[in-house]
Structure formats: structure tokens, C-alpha cells
Amino acid sequence: MDSPPSVSLFAWRPLAGILYRQVVLYRRSLPRWMEIFYWPLLDLLVWGFLTLYLKKIPSFLPSAVVSLLGALLLWDMLYRAQQGISVMFLEEIWSRNLIHLLVAPVTPYHIVLGAILSSFGKVLLSSTVAATLAYFLFSFKIFSLGVNLLFFVGALLAMGWSLGIMTTAVILRFGQEAEVLAWGVIFLFQPFSAVFNPVGVLPPLAAAISRIVPASYVFEGMRSLLTAGTLPVHDLLMAYLLDGVYLAGAIFLYSRVIARARRKGFHLKLGS
């Protein structure tokens, strides 16, 4: 029997379908827009006011104070990248739509790629607004990091997406009982990411753990750039190397869980 061509892994329409749905969801939903802008705005105000206060204390280095806002903006990108993947997957479960997608001529990787692209859009929107507000409200210029900012952001997004894929795999395996991970998993990494403090101030065990967290190198690099004006290339390379390991691990875990789900059927009970 002659078959029409199957849907290629790189076909644009299936991805457009997944993205179209996200665009429509956001086009008319005020709460979703609030989710993108509300928390970053509140965080920015809290930390921005703190920096205003700290700047008035003579013993504080102005550059160290400023780096708090840079750290906040970058942390939000990491957080949103992870959440973008996990929450989109959860929404498929909540709306009893996951099986429709799994029956469709797309692979689970199309679904993840769609989530990555969608989360990238949200991060871009949210970060642009937050960075603009940081400039106008607190005179903080994230773009003073120059082109290095792109490298920092790239490394953080890769880590966020890796964690998002891992979280998705765990939710797929253990069901909605594990959905709290979608919101909480990133905070497990926060103490070891050296977001607001240098790795040097961490206790030895925490410092050792931070060495295997890509974000710690990014935040160290950002501080070094803001305070000393130099970019530790080694740190950036380490961040990307670890990101590669995280991403490979996430894809491996996701593949294994999908394969096991098809044998055991636990994904068929999700959302029911």
C-alpha cells in the first residue's frame, strides 16, 4: 500500500499548531499576562528598593549592590524557562488533551520543542519589561553587560529547559502528585546557584554542590563582569559544559520515561 509521507520531525506546521495554541491562550487571558509581568515586577520593586537602601550605607560597594538587580533579572529568566516547559505539560494534563497529542503524528520531542519555543517567547517578553522597568525605576542597565549578556542568558535558558524536561518526565512518571515540582524544583537549585552571593561565602559542602550547578558559573561571571569588568571565560565554558550534561541527562530521562509509559500505561491515567 502506498503511504503518503509521514510528518517529518522538522515539519513546521505541527510546531506552529502547538505555538498557535499558546498565542491564543495568552491573547485573551489577563491572568496569564499577569503571570508573565506580575511576579517579575514585584520582585523588581522589592529588590530595587533594597538596593536603594544599601547604596546609602557607606560600607557597601556600589557595584555589588547593582549586581543584585542583574542577578534578579537573570534568575527570573532561569525560573521562567523551567516553568514554561513543566507548566505547559501540566496544562495538557489538566485539560485532558495529552492523549490527543500523543496520538497525533508528532513525537514527544515535538511537544517539548514547542514548549521550549513558547517559553522562550515568554522569557523574552517578561525580561524585556523587567529590564525596561529596572532602567527607568532604578537606573540599572542590564545591557551594560554587553554581548556577554547573551552568553549568560543562553546558559541559564539551557539549564532552565533541562530542568523543565526533567520535571516533565517526573510528572509523567508519578502523575499529578508530582506537579508541585513544576513550581518548586528550581528553588532546590537556588541556594547553590550563587544568585545573590558569591560561591566563596558558601559553606564547603554547598560550595562543592554549586560547582555542578551551571547557574553558579553564570552568576559568578555576571558579578565579575559588573564589579571587575572582566569576563571569566572559563566559568562560562563550565556553565555550557554542565548545561550539555544536564540537557543530555534530561533527554535521556524523558526518553526512558516515555518508553516505560508505553509499556506500563501510567500516562494513560494522567488527568483522569
Binding site: V7, A11, R13, P14, A16, G17, I18, Y20, R21, V24, H100, L101, A104, P105, V106
Partner: peptide, 10 residues
């Protein structure tokens, strides 16, 4: 929803 799936089904 139907448009979403028409696209997903290429």
C-alpha cells in the same frame, strides 16, 4: 482547537 489540530496534523 480544531485549527490547532489541523496544524498539528500538518
Amino acid at each position: 482547537n480544531l485549527l490547532t489540530y489541523a496544524l498539528i496534523y500538518n
